[in-house]
Design a protein around this nucleic acid. Sequence first.
DNA 1: CGGTATCCGGGAAGATACTG
DNA 2: CAGTATCTTCCCGGATACCG
Lengths: 141, 141
Amino acid sequence: MTRSHQGNLGTGSRPARLAAWQAEGFDPHNCPVRTILDQVTAKWTVLILLEVQEEPKRFNMLLRALPDISRRMLTQGLRDLERHGLLQRTVFDTRPPGVEYALTDLGRALMEPLLALVDWVGAHSKTIFAARERFDGTASG
Amino acid sequence: MTRSHQGNLGTGSRPARLAAWQAEGFDPHNCPVRTILDQVTAKWTVLILLEVQEEPKRFNMLLRALPDISRRMLTQGLRDLERHGLLQRTVFDTRPPGVEYALTDLGRALMEPLLALVDWVGAHSKTIFAARERFDGTASG
DNA sequence: CGGTATCCGGGAAGATACTG
DNA sequence: CAGTATCTTCCCGGATACCG
């Protein structure tokens, strides 16, 4: 398991981006950005971030707000976001104990490009769905 | 901007976004944006889009450019991108037959917010990795 | 309340072989 | 060259039960 080395997907905005990365030793097996991106865009994380963005939330509040998530997956998603420094977990020593999750500064910063993507998809969802149906139609017809 | 939304993830930029969506009947089981977003950010799609963005590519060129992808997954990813209207598949009646994949206008439009996210992650990957190690360290130590 | 541990089924994805 | 078909394996994720 040799996992050490970065210097992969990152800044730079010319067209031949991937080619440039490859020229400087891009290693798809070992690309930190892919790892992070997979996490950030994982099934539940976007929704969790969206929830917490409004205001800090407690575990069961999130469980209720995200109707089809399981305890297990919520815990896991929360841990992962915390691990990446995007969420701050705060335990209150009350009775019964309370735990609050809030965006960190890093998490808040992430919301900008993330919401931009979400908005783009939202704005074009009809077009995309139309393309889907066209594709599925011609495939079967 | 007569963009009538369909009650799900989409346009709108106030803070309590999720709450607003829920108020107007947001259904997490049936959210088009989540479906699309999952596809768009799936394991290989970003890399595929990055590759064809430079210039149209053929199947085996992509296979070679993405060292650790399997035939099966490449085919599937390509089909999916085509299905969503992001990629244009063109067959050349040459011998031996050639097939070329290129971004559509929609696909090109997607690259802007998508690259913005990728760049953000790239720019903050060190911070995030540091957070990871800190988290893992305190967890085990 | 806020989790963790365990079991288990189904789908995702790799390897391989074959086809037009 | 550009895929498809099949087989198998692996791990994601739901359900459930229990702990601090």
